[in-house]
Structure formats: C-alpha cells, structure tokens
Design a protein around this nucleic acid. Structure first.
Lengths: 349, 349
DNA sequence: TTGAAAGCGCTACCAT
DNA sequence: ATGGTAGCGCTTTCAA
C-alpha cells in the first residue's frame, strides 16, 4: 500500500492524506481521523526512500567509529550509549547508520556521507587531542556532536563529555588517603583526548599531596587485555613496584588481575586497583577491595542526550553549539548493584 | 554537483553518464574514462536518496539487537563483528543501520523496516530457542542471516554460528583432565540458543567421564558482572563448593574474580576458572592459570562472512539458505597474543 | 479545508 | 554506443 493507493481508497488527494499523516494543522479533525484510521488499518507506512528524496533529508544519523583505535568499540558499555541514542532517533523518525572506519579513511567517509546525503548529522566518537575531524565537519557543514572533547581545538562545537580529569583526581586522592604513595597509571592511547584529561587528573591528585608523577609507572596504550597483563607484569618487576594501580578501562583490568593471579597476589590485599571505565561509569576499590560498578542507565541517558543535541542542531542550524559535561560519581562498595551516576550540567570555562 | 550538472558539463546525456558510472558494458571505454575523470574531479557522488528511490533498493542492511537481553551488546568483541560486516557492506555500497530494540517491539520493528523500505535485509542477533523472528522474517520476505542459530526451528534459513557445544565439551574435558570432579557452570539466559548449546556441551563433557550434571552448580542468567559476583559467592557458600567454574562470558567472569578476591582465593590456585566468551573467542586456563585470549580478527572475519552471506541472499533470492559453523579453537597460554580461531565449514547434519 | 501538479535526482526502458 | 523520457513515492508550492 502506497500513498496513492491509500488516497484513492479514501477518495482524497495525496496531498491531504500526506498532510493528515504528517500532522499539518490545516486538515480537519474529521479527515485526519479517517486518514489515520485507514493508514493503521492498511498497515501503511510511507516509503522511506521516497520521503527522503522528496524532503531532501536523509532521516538518518551517522555514528563513526575509528577502528584502529578501538577504545570506544571494545568498551562494554559503549553499546548502551548507542542504545540510548538510537531510541531517540527512532522516536524522531531517524535511523542510526553505523560506520566503522579505518583511521586513514575517516575524512573520506565523512565527505562521502555528506555528499551522498546519506545522513543529516554525525556523532564523532573517540576524539583525539586536536582532532582534525572537527574542522572537517565544520567545513562540510554537516551537523555533528562529539562524544568526548578535543583539546586544543579553538572553534566552538557541540560536545558531551564526562569530567575525566576530576574523576581521576578523585581516584588518585582516594588511594593517597589509603596511604599509597606509589600509584601507577595504566592509561589509554596517548593521542586520545580522554587519556590526556585522565592523566591530568592523576597529576592533579598527586600534586595536591605534594607528590610528582613518576613516568616509569605511567603508560599509554590501546586498552586491551594484553596491555593490562604485560604492563602489570612490568610494573611488578620494577625495583620499587607500585602499591596501587589505576586502570583506565575494564578490559586491561582483566589482564592486570590475571597478572596478579600469576604471582599469587590478591588485589585488595597485596595491591590496590582502581578501575575507571570509559565515559560515564566509575570504578573504585572499597576498603581495598576492588569494585566494579557499571552505571549502564546513565550511559544510556548520555546517548539520549547526545541524540537530542544533534537533532536540535539539525533542526536549528544557526543556534550556537552546546556543551554538556557529565560528572561521574565515585561509588563505593556498590558491587552488587548499579549506582546511578550524578549527572549535572557543568559548562566548563 | 548532481547528475544533470555533470552530464551537461560533459555534453552527454544523464543516461550515458549513469551507465558509465555504474559499470554498464555498453559504454565506450573512452567515454567511461571521461566520465569517471570528471566525476572524480568534481567530487561527484550520486545522491543516495535518489538512487534508492529509483532502484527500489534501500542499499542498507539492518542489524537488530534485542535490548532487554543484552548479551550481544555487552560483549566486548561484538563490535568486531559489526566492524567486519560493515566493511563488506561499504565495499558493496551498502550502509549499516543499527536498531537497538526492546524485546516487545521487535516484531514491529522488523515490519516497519520492511514496509518503509529502509533496509534490504537484516542480521538477527541473539537468537533464542525456537525464535519467532525467523518465521516472521520468512513471512515478510525480508532476507536475513541469523548470527547464531535457533534450535527447534524446522525451516531452513541462513545462519552463521560457532560450535558452542563442542567448545564447552572441550572446556569441561579439560577441567576433568586436571582432576576436577565438581565443575560449576555460569551460563547465559536460559532461553538463549547459545546457552542451551553450551549447556549441552558441558553435559557432554561430564557424561563422557561418567559424571552427571548437578543442577545446584549450574545457573542461567543475563551475563552481567553482578551475576558473576553473586553467583560465585553463592557457589562458594555451598556445603561442597565446586573446585572449578566455567563462565560463559568475560563480563560475569570479572565479577567472579572479584568474589574470589573478597575471600582471599586465587584463581588458578584455589580454584580453576575457564571462561568462554561469546562467538569466536575461546578462553581456557593454562596449567590452572586463567587465560584470556580474544581472537578479534576471527570475529571480524565472521562478520565479513555474515555480510557476504546476506548480500548473496539479497542478490539471489531463490538460492537455498546457507549455513556456516565455525570452530572455536582451544588456546592455551596465549595470553600475550591473539590466537587465530580455526574456522572451518562444518555443515551439521 | 482540499486538490493538481511540479519536482526531488536518480535508473532503466525504449528508441535510434 | 548514446539519448529521451517515464517513472520511483513522496512533499510542497500554488490554486481554488
């Protein structure tokens, strides 16, 4: 059943039926009801292809995930972000187009997406320090929201991020409070913006206690299980090994735990581990017992918020960009339940 | 730049330009070259919306992920599957449309996708035992490939799956070889097809050694960290606790390890853990030291294979369905590198 | 409040 | 080997 058939059936013009279905005000209530009922009854849904061509909009949002640096993708809670965003898109009649692209093809992919009219906007994942994608998208005029931020980019753009710096400062302070003085950091890839902010937070925490960063116990790499395993072993082999480790993601933390197990060390007893997973989850050890708390619903909410931001940017192209900074809550001993993250708008200066 | 402008510029008809660009044989090589060069030079790409309407194809594949049972999504290596599939789609000019849907809305979502003409085919994730989606899609005439299988579905359909049963039989046999006689199983949700097959494999392993399944140490639930934590504690509280645990996914395994840590138990010393993550990765403990080996590239390859299967089904609608059963390789002590999964075609009888 | 008809930018049929 | 043109199924002026 298409529009023509439906309007023929109703004895109305395609125009009127289209207007009734799309909520235009000039249709009489009586007609609208008739049309809606008939549409439902006949299982009519407008052809997405025709609608897209006629309106000139793609009715789709692209999510682009750089593949050689897979932080975002391997993150177990990343999917919740997509779920949240996808829900909002669906509510607004948009589809979610997922592009997993090689780093080197990224610029080309954005260009293609824009030129082909395949999407109306994109979400940028895994931003690097001074990420060139922001300039590219601005130049292309393709609306976008960055999931994360990019330091050293001077222009204004839409982003939603978690306060990584503060989160890591807190994690560091927590371990210092427990008496640790030699705290290692297993961080993400050096070029990633979130990793830079997390390092700064770690540094903040140490400085506040009058301590300095020891580069020997700080590392940056892709967050794989292998990395966590090898790096933890290396740390334990040092002449003066750390007494605590802060790990940027749950994935390398698995490897770290295995490395400890190999040596008969018990996390929480022989050594402390604080894990901070990406984005909106916060991990901390409780009385020296490691705790993992994934605040999945808050990640979902962040996805929804991102979608709202992008849809608004598409609808009102001339509004100034928006920013949303989410706070991650330090949760203690919540290992058997999800602790809701405290989310608040904190526009950074 | 659109087709009309490009053809005007070249002094050719839209027809010829279109044919040249789409590789039709009746265009002279000279003309084709001219057209291709001009297209490249002017950054011309055909409008996806127009192309879709004109051809009647969506040039897109849907991946539908049920959200209340989040096995697929929380699986850290699931993203690799999408990456592999997405790559193939891109090579063939298709987009990947991701739909994260509530269980209850699933049927409706499929119907909508089909009626709107938003996708040309779908990949079904997280199949349940006797999954009703297979009948629905068959009825809708929407080409599909199931990532996994669905027992008790009698009709023939496209699927790609890993040999979960054999994998779990092997894991069980391995622990039995080490002398364990009381082996617990932390499995996925009871209704999930993969969980049923894994249970059967576990049972196979026990039976082969003349042992029976003790229901007290077998559990089925959504594979969360919380589940792994709570369930491991419950197991250890038993009068005769297990000496080994097989865990269906890396996520609950994190919780399991934490539970062990709480009690000062060291995995690999006080208790054995074998982890089997979803799909194409295989985990096993090495000399009683737990080992995690994610064969990410093989998961990617499985995604590619799935895409190929679906694209073929779309192009040749009347070919019989295909099936691909992948073997998961039992890897030992490969913790510092990825072990390639042995993949072979094993059409099951 | 309703309708007629001109696009949207392609593809593909039918000519030549 | 190339071109004219009628759609594809909608939306959106412009008229009534």
């Amino acid at each position: 059943m298409n529009l023509k058939e439906l309007s023929d059936y109703l004895g109305l013009s395609q125009t009127t039926v289209s207007r009734a279905l799309n909520g235009y005000p000039e249709v009489s209530e009586k007609t609208r009801r008739r049309v809606m009922d008939a549409a439902r009854q006949h299982d009519y849904l407008p052809d997405a292809r025709a609608k897209r061509l006629a309106t000139g909009r793609a009715m789709a949002i692209g999510h682009l995930l750089p593949v050689s640096k897979e932080h975002e993708m391997v993150n177990p809670i990343f999917s919740d972000f997509l779920a949240g965003a996808g829900k909002r898109y669906a509510e607004n009649g948009f589809d979610l187009v997922l592009s997993v692209v090689e780093d080197k093809d990224e610029a080309e992919t954005y260009r293609d997406l824009a030129r082909r009219g395949a999407v109306d906007g994109v979400v940028v994942h895994g931003p690097r320090i001074n990420d060139e994608r922001i300039a590219l998208l601005t130049e292309l005029g393709l609306p976008f929201v960055v999931h994360g931020r990019s330091s050293e980019v001077s222009t204004d753009y839409n982003w939603i991020d978690v306060n990584n710096r503060r989160a890591f400062a807190r994690a560091t302070a927590f371990l210092l409070d427990l008496g640790h003085r030699r705290i290692a950091l297993l961080n993400g890839l050096a070029g990633m913006d979130f990793a830079a902010r997390r390092f700064k937070g770690y540094q903040d925490g140490l400085h506040a206690a009058g301590l300095d960063v020891d580069p020997d116990i700080v590392s940056h790499a892709e967050m794989t299980e292998t990395y966590g395993y090898a790096r933890t072993n290396a740390l334990l082999d040092l002449d003066t090994p750390p007494t605590a480790i802060i790990i940027s993601s749950i994935i390398p933390a698995i490897g770290a735990r295995r490395a400890l197990g190999d040596r008969g060390l018990t996390p929480g007893k022989d050594i402390s581990i604080v894990i901070h997973d990406d984005d909106l989850s916060y991990f901390r050890n409780d009385g020296d017992v490691p705790t993992y708390t994934a605040t999945r619903s808050s990640v979902r909410a962040a996805g929804e918020e991102t979608a709202d931001m992008l849809l608004a940017a598409i609808r009102e192209p001339h509004q100034p960009p928006r920013q949303l900074l989410l706070e991650a809550e330090l949760t203690v001993g919540q290992s058997t339940g999800a602790a809701p993250a405290v989310r608040q708008l904190l526009k950074e200066g």
